[in-house]
């Protein structure tokens, strides 16, 4: 897949889809808000695409290379924002950050929820709407929306357990 993208950059989309969740989760766990996480994720993939020709297969998965770029992007970000870096670019532990894997799986699982539950989760956590606003949008009672929220999270927990087991 990597070699194909090196030959034809338009094939990079496949690499992107395959690694987006893990790169995003890796960054999101290390920055304070969603906007920074999204900006840095975009930066990482653009850098990866621009320097894809320099990637050499050395037995390390492609995502390790992406996370290395992410580590450098985070270091630059912290340097610019004058904050102490939590993780330096050279000390990324690849494949052992289970929380990153967990977040990546969780983000993926949200898409597999039933549409009404998925909408409630997105509105609640991404758009940060109140239950009342969501109820108004869905034309349902607040109690019903709270129930949808609870069941959606129960479903995610169950699927997370399945994916772990």
């Amino acid at each position: 897949m990597v070699e194909a993208a090196q030959r034809d950059p338009s094939r990079f989309a496949e690499l992107y889809e395959h690694n987006f969740e893990r790169v995003y989760a890796y960054i999101a766990r290390r920055v304070s808000n969603r906007e920074e996480a999204q900006d840095l994720t975009a930066e990482v993939f653009h850098q990866a695409l621009a320097n894809l020709s320099q990637f050499e297969w050395r037995g390390v998965p492609f995502v390790a290379w992406l996370l290395r770029i992410a580590g450098h992007a985070l270091a630059d970000h912290w340097k610019k924002s004058s904050r102490d870096p939590v993780v330096a670019g050279d000390t990324i532990e690849l494949g052992v950050d289970h929380e990153v894997e967990r977040c990546a799986i969780l983000n993926d699982l949200v898409d597999s929820l039933p549409p009404d539950q998925r909408l409630v989760i997105v509105r609640r956590f991404v758009d940060q709407r109140s239950i009342r606003e969501i109820a108004h949008e869905l034309q349902r009672s607040e109690g019903a929306v709270k129930q949808l929220q609870f069941r959606a999270m129960q479903a995610l927990r169950a699927q997370m357990g399945d994916s772990r087991g």
Partner: peptide, 19 residues
């Protein structure tokens, strides 16, 4: 973990930009 979930259209936007 859901609190930092990416926005709904971010992934698709980024893919378009990468293309």
């Amino acid at each position: 973990n859901l609190r930092t979930m990416p926005s709904a259209d971010f992934r698709q936007h980024l893919r378009s930009d990468l293309e």
